[in-house]
Structure formats: structure tokens, C-alpha cells
Nucleic acid binder design. Structure first.
Lengths: 240, 240
DNA sequence: TCGAAAAGAGAGCGCCGCTCTTGACATCGC
DNA sequence: GCGATGTCAAGAGCGGCGCTCTCTTTTCGA
């Protein structure tokens, strides 16, 4: 009978959910190296070997948590973008950056798992690629919308990318249709710059150097947004 | 006698050196989590407890290796800078960026230790701060020299930092004396942007997306250098 | 030369990931 | 209704880890 079969399957799904839940808590409090299948089993009142019925190895559990984390930051970014007026391109960019930072500050260990050192010996399976680019997809859509709306006016005086960049530009352009190579290159610089300053903050590189990290972050993302041609926002002072 | 005393002390220094040497090899091949005192002892033909005569804990060995790594990338950057004509500011910037990337590509696990996820439970002692900023010091000197030489002409159209940034700007300015707040902010954006793109490359974020990472890197550092006002170099095409 | 300090050796504690086997129990075909 | 089949928790155990404690040996300075 499907009823009784689903009874078992539901029990299995519930236990799987509980394992990932406890794993996520361990991850948040101890970091990736503190993730222990034995500790999870202990907390669940199971014997350690029973866990392996649900996750064949520690890496498999880690993969599940990584996918969850990618989806979490992706969703945070998507929702922040969705709350903005569609034609407020600089506002959308700022909202995305702030959402990413907010999530990272709230979940530093998960951020480290996604954008920090790769777990040694761990090879990300194919299932992770789609969740992994959810945030980047949002970013690309903002730029594509802004470009289509004629709202991108990149500052003069920057070098153009060499012709050899055109191949990779074509690949990246699938995320931001329509943008010329020059803007694709600037978009990559902005995006990686965002994660650069974010990683510096999360990973402690600003310790004893920068105190008011919010001010620095806000100004930096405005600068990076301006680099790709987003207009200066109302709240900014104009430059020299 | 100092001769006989140094006999034992030399043995101690030699063993300490050998431990860090093997540790560095483990680090390079396995990453930080693969660093095992027992394995080091095994390779040295010692019993594992004897290692603790030289490093009281695994974290202390890790600290030594981190300091070594900071010094290694710092030295690579310093030497690259020293090979340039002093007044070739964009050349020095590019040399520094390339040296950092070259070192990171050659020592990805060590790079991860410095600029990736912090080792959980590990607190960097005070001894690490001076080696940790060797590369940043070089960067600051280039900008200070360029500014003093009147060679910085930052592009127009970027927002100015808010007044609340001035306090942190003062602290950062100790690395690049003379620069106004606006340029200090751009300098931070450039520097964090450099490590942003570097981390994306080293940590695999470009996998299956960007093939020709050298081209992208070269163009990005030119863009970031331009952002702080370094002149466009000869090899670059001029922009629109 | 002798006593103190330093260093190595060994056993052991409590963790860890992971494997293999065993017995209890539900499910399904006959 | 009842065996055959599949699923699962439990237990024991393997090798590895960081680290500690004790005991012996070596070294070195007064």
C-alpha cells in the first residue's frame, strides 16, 4: 500500500531533515571542521553508524549543506532585488550587495564554505552549480535590465579589454544579455570586487584597521556600481 | 661553552626547521586540515609525543606556517616591486599584482590559509600582524610615491566617500601617506578587488565559466589600477 | 664529576570517519 | 496467513587524530 510505504518514506525524510538541521547548527557554531556525524548521532539519540543510512559519507552531508547555503544566499539576494522598483537599477544593485553582506555576517561559517577555502579533498558535485549561481543570475539581470533601459553610462578613461577576452565574455554574457565586452569585463570586476571586500570583512582582514565597515562597504559598492555604469544615487555626494 | 651549548641548540633549531619543512609540504599537498603532527613525527622517525617538545600544539605549528606564508607572499611582492623603475607606477602595480597571483597559483593551500576561511578555533597571535601586511605596505608605498610624483589622475564621475569615512581613512593613510580620503577609499576598493578576483580564481569560482583567467586578471588589475588614478599603460588600448 | 635541565619513548584518553555483522521489524507475493 | 525480501538500528571494531602523563636517557653547565 502506498500509505504504509509513504509512512516509512516520511520517517526517512523527517530524519534526513533533522540530520541536516543539526548539521547546519554545528556548521554555524563550529565551522566546517566541527561538523561531526558522531555528534549529530549523539544529539539525535542514535548510534553513529545509523547516520550512514542517510548520508553515505561526511562529504555527502557537507554537499547538502553547501547546496542549502547557496540557496539561502541566493534567495536572500533574490528577495532583496524583488523588493525594489524594477527601473531603480542602482537601488537594486545596492539591495543585492546589502543582502549578500547581511547574509554573510549572519552566517559567516556558511559564507566561508561557499566563498572561502575549498574543503580539501572535497569535490563539488554537479548538483551545486545551479544553486551556486543564483545570486550571480540576479546580478546579471540587473545589469541586463539597466543596459536595455539605457541606464548604463560607464565612466571614461578606463582601458578596453583585449580581443582575447571576447571568448570568455561571450560565456559570461549569457548572464547579462546584450552587454558589450567592455561592460562584461567591468561587471566581473565589480562582482569579484564585492566578494573581495566581503571576504576581507568576514575573514577578519580588516581587524584593527577598519572600524566602520558598513560605511566602507556602502561606499565601495557605490564605487563598484559606478564602475559598470550605474548612475550615482541620490544619497551620494558628487565627486570632484 | 657557547660551542657545546650551541650544539644542542643547533640540534633543536634544525629539528624545528625540519618540522616546519615537513609541515609546509603537508600543507601544500593536503591543505590545513591535512596537517598532522603524528604524520610529521612518523616521517621524522620520532614518536608523536616528542613533537610537542618543539611545538606545544598543532595551532602553534600552524601559526609558524602562517607567518612563513605571509612572509613568502610579502617577499615575492617586494621583490617584484623592487625590479621596477621607481617612477613606473603602473608597472609597479602590475608587477605586484602578478607576483601575488603567481605566488597564490603556486601555493594555493597557503593562499587559502591567509586569505580564505579562518581556521576555526584558531586565533591569530600578535606576531602575525607585521608579516601579514608586508604586501599591503608595498601597495601603499606605490600609491604614495605615485601621488607624491603627481602621477595619480583618478577618473571623474565617482562618488566621494562620506565624512564618516575620514576616521578609518586616517588609519589606512598611514600606509599611503598624503592621499586624500577619496583616493584612500579607491585604494581599498582596488586592493580588496585584487584579492576578490584572486580568490575567485584560486577557490574555483571561475570553473566552467572563465577559461582565460590570465587575460581577465590582467585586464581587471589594469581597471583597478586605473580606478585609483594610475595612468593607463602603453600596452592597453584606450577606451571609448 | 655530579645534579639539573632537556629530550625521547611509551602508554593511554577521548575524539573522529567509516565498515561489517547481527538481529528486529515492516512489507509484499503466494 | 505465512514465509521471503528489504530496511533499519545497534554494536563492535579499525586506524587515525590531538594531546597528556610518566619514565628513562642524554646532554650540559657549575
Amino acid at each position: 500500500m502506498s500509505a504504509s510505504r509513504t509512512a516509512r518514506e516520511r520517517a526517512r525524510a523527517e530524519l534526513t531533515r533533522e540530520i541536516t538541521e543539526i548539521g547546519r547548527r554545528q556548521l554555524a557554531s563550529e565551522g566546517a571542521t566541527g561538523l561531526s556525524l558522531r555528534a549529530i548521532a549523539r544529539e539525535m539519540g542514535m548510534v553513529s553508524s545509523a547516520i550512514y543510512r542517510y548520508f553515505p559519507s561526511r562529504d555527502d552531508l557537507l554537499t547538502a549543506l553547501i547546496i542549502d547555503a547557496y540557496n539561502a544566499i541566493g534567495e536572500a539576494v533574490e528577495q532583496a532585488d524583488a523588493r525594489c522598483a524594477e527601473d531603480d537599477y542602482p537601488g537594486r544593485w545596492r539591495a543585492v550587495c546589502r543582502a549578500a553582506r547581511g547574509w554573510a555576517l549572519a552566517h559567516p561559517h556558511e559564507y566561508a564554505l561557499l566563498y572561502g577555502s575549498p574543503v580539501p579533498g572535497y569535490q563539488a558535485p554537479q548538483d551545486t552549480v545551479e544553486p551556486a549561481i543564483r545570486d550571480t543570475v540576479v546580478y546579471g539581470r540587473i545589469l541586463a535590465d539597466a543596459y536595455a533601459g539605457g541606464a548604463l553610462s560607464p565612466p571614461d578613461g578606463f582601458p578596453a579589454p583585449p580581443p582575447s577576452f571576447s571568448h570568455d565574455a561571450e560565456a559570461v554574457r549569457s548572464l547579462m544579455p546584450g552587454l558589450p565586452d567592455d561592460l562584461v569585463a567591468r561587471a566581473v570586476a565589480s562582482w569579484t570586487g564585492l566578494f573581495g571586500i566581503l571576504s576581507f570583512e568576514i575573514f577578519g582582514q580588516f581587524n584593527n584597521v577598519v572600524d566602520d565597515r558598513t560605511t566602507l562597504f556602502e561606499h565601495t559598492i557605490d564605487t563598484l556600481g559606478r564602475l559598470v555604469g550605474l548612475p550615482v544615487s541620490d544619497h551620494d555626494l558628487t565627486s570632484t
